[in-house]
Design a protein around this nucleic acid. Sequence first.
DNA 1: AGCCTCTCAGTGGTCTGACCACTTTTGCAC
DNA 2: GTGCAAAAGTGGTCAGACCACTGAGAGGCT
Lengths: 240, 240
Amino acid sequence: MDGSDSERTSVTRRAVERIKEMISSGEVGPGQRLPTERDLSARLGVSRSSMREAIRSLTTLGVLEARHGAGVYVTALRPADLLETFSVLAEVSGGETLLEVLQVRRIIEPAATALAAARATDADLERIGALLDRIDGDPATAADTVTADLGFHQAIVAGTGNATLAAVNDGLSSRTFNARVWAGHREAGFTDALREDHRRIHEALLARDPEAARAAATVHVMRVERWLTAELATRETRDR
Amino acid sequence: MDGSDSERTSVTRRAVERIKEMISSGEVGPGQRLPTERDLSARLGVSRSSMREAIRSLTTLGVLEARHGAGVYVTALRPADLLETFSVLAEVSGGETLLEVLQVRRIIEPAATALAAARATDADLERIGALLDRIDGDPATAADTVTADLGFHQAIVAGTGNATLAAVNDGLSSRTFNARVWAGHREAGFTDALREDHRRIHEALLARDPEAARAAATVHVMRVERWLTAELATRETRDR
DNA sequence: AGCCTCTCAGTGGTCTGACCACTTTTGCAC
DNA sequence: GTGCAAAAGTGGTCAGACCACTGAGAGGCT
């Protein structure tokens, strides 16, 4: 049994740990259903309230999924399930943190794009090309462009075949930020530069040229980075 | 934007949104204290149980912090506060995902180490050196070595001055996984290789040589990666 | 007065039991 | 067999009570 020293750990935290153990030990696998809340609470000797808070915690983390009337299930545990956190980060953080986020993307995206140039399947490349057309085309709304842009980068990172890498990068990409980038460039008439970046990346991928892909991706992220720096500077000046 | 139709949204989810609004609108700022649970539940017209689940959710995400007997506080909202998620990923996921995580670290750590070689302050380097001594020294317990090892890499990434980068990388580093690595290498008598990797990284940092630092970090991560691959293979063979 | 201890009100943590909303299964009528 | 309605099961919510802990003020000691 567990240690007789119950220490200072809260009941709920212990319940969380026990459920995590059940998962990591393989007692319940991805997609499988957990015992009922009432059952679990009785088995672990805690009240249903505490058990529910434990489940809520794991649900928030994307480990569990509760279906009203049907039961609590373990998610597929794919890294993509755990992206909520960083989206919250993007929601609350200001300009300073956004710059840091871009610097992280300047590390990840070039490497990912280079990997994709080597690993992506032909189907991946086709999908990426289609998204590029949606960016370059004559979209009805600006929202379309943003969606296609996000999908473009997402598809590239997914083309590495590494779902964890894709999840991390997705978490660092905020839709609202992306929209700001496009709006800012449109205002200044610089959208062609963004489109050229994308075309350059796409060509490198088609050519299966990792180094060219890396360079193209780096140029692209740095352009956005420089834009944000200028944006923050003018905002600073205006607000003071 | 998101539907304001409150139709089928759960009570708890609405409570979460309301609290997030309170934060993003500046009604309560980082470090400040929220109204009491009883107060909040009355104000939003939900039961205290549901309010507690909402708070639990935001606590899990690292947005709120509950202090027993003292109140619920908004965290500093630093990126580091929101690292729990990925550590859970590393805890719960199987071998396949662990490999993916290591591939991500092989992208991030070399770049971060190179950056640290250029940017880290002398105080940073001193701290890193001290941690290296704790790894190389004659530690009382294996846990000490693991702690020092984690701290070593953590300090390096922190030396880039990018807190977001540090938070991401920390989230990809699991203590339990690190312990497995050391245990595995100790069993095979390969701990010297790990120690040499660390020394090589440290020397590159002291020499302010980004490229050497990048190479040293790459070698290190790849060593762990190769070990894990072998480990998974033998495990596979044994279990079948 | 100044300092220390100790009580106590306030707050988060846990428990219980009830009822509601939804899903899935059961079983009856056709 | 088919279709549908009832019922059983499950997560979601609510209410009220008590426990564990914190912080501050009351009271006593030096």
